[in-house]
Design a protein around this nucleic acid. Sequence first.
DNA 1: GTATATGCAAAACTTTTGCATCCTT
DNA 2: AAGGATGCAAAAGTTTTGCATATAC
Lengths: 141, 141
Amino acid sequence: MPEIDDLKKAGLKTTQPRLKILAALEKSPVRHVSAEDVFKLLLEEQEDIGLATVYRVLTQFETSGLVIRHNFEGGRSVFELNDADHHDHIVCVKCGRVAEFSDHDIEKRQKKAAEKAGFILQDHALYLYGLCHKCARQKNA
Amino acid sequence: MPEIDDLKKAGLKTTQPRLKILAALEKSPVRHVSAEDVFKLLLEEQEDIGLATVYRVLTQFETSGLVIRHNFEGGRSVFELNDADHHDHIVCVKCGRVAEFSDHDIEKRQKKAAEKAGFILQDHALYLYGLCHKCARQKNA
DNA sequence: GTATATGCAAAACTTTTGCATCCTT
DNA sequence: AAGGATGCAAAAGTTTTGCATATAC
């Protein structure tokens, strides 16, 4: 059970809710999910885990580096598993689909820009917004 | 009164609340403000404008391009006047100070990345998070 | 005068928290 | 057994909305 090791490494007690939430993130058909989404995924599998717990656990996961929290447009947080490979995101403004990309040069330039502004860079969020090819085709609706 | 022209150009009726809110954004000592911040600025000047109106007007301003809405970490939206010069932001995770920068190369690479992913780029948000020089100095507190 | 905008209060949403109970070690 | 985790419900924070009244053109 690799999930147990993940939790231990994160310094978290291996409880049922935490295991289930981690499994839900892994099994989810969509990689980027809100707390509500996770809650619903668990409901579908008859797992009786409260929404408050989902929020608490996702926040702990974020703190321990297991997941990444995003603040896309729309007000609510979305989460994704933190695989070691860093990447940025492009979100379709019409259908919400999320694609990922990464660009080493952009990263380098970000660090430089931070230094120039007198900051020690700790983190960054780069979100592109646009129309995915499917939505671009159907201008209507 | 240049503000009147701004509103007309934006296709908005020139009402007192809209003028006052626009003026507040211009006069604000801090460039990046939340709806609540605008509301308080107006209160200080004895302007009796409801918070709901502030939200409505800021959203209209966003739609018409007069202001830009940001979703920094922390859950609530912050707004800034949309001066023609585009720039990105770096936010101090400790004191909340916001600095601005711009990098033409990053912009170019964003457009390319979007194309590569099959998207038509419409907008982007690049937020850097770190410690400003003041907060980096005082590691305590 | 007519359509639109505003204020107020209530509602809608997302996220957090207090507290009694349950689970992990 | 002891401390931390969970569930529930209530609260807190932000943003939206319904509706009567006021304002701009």
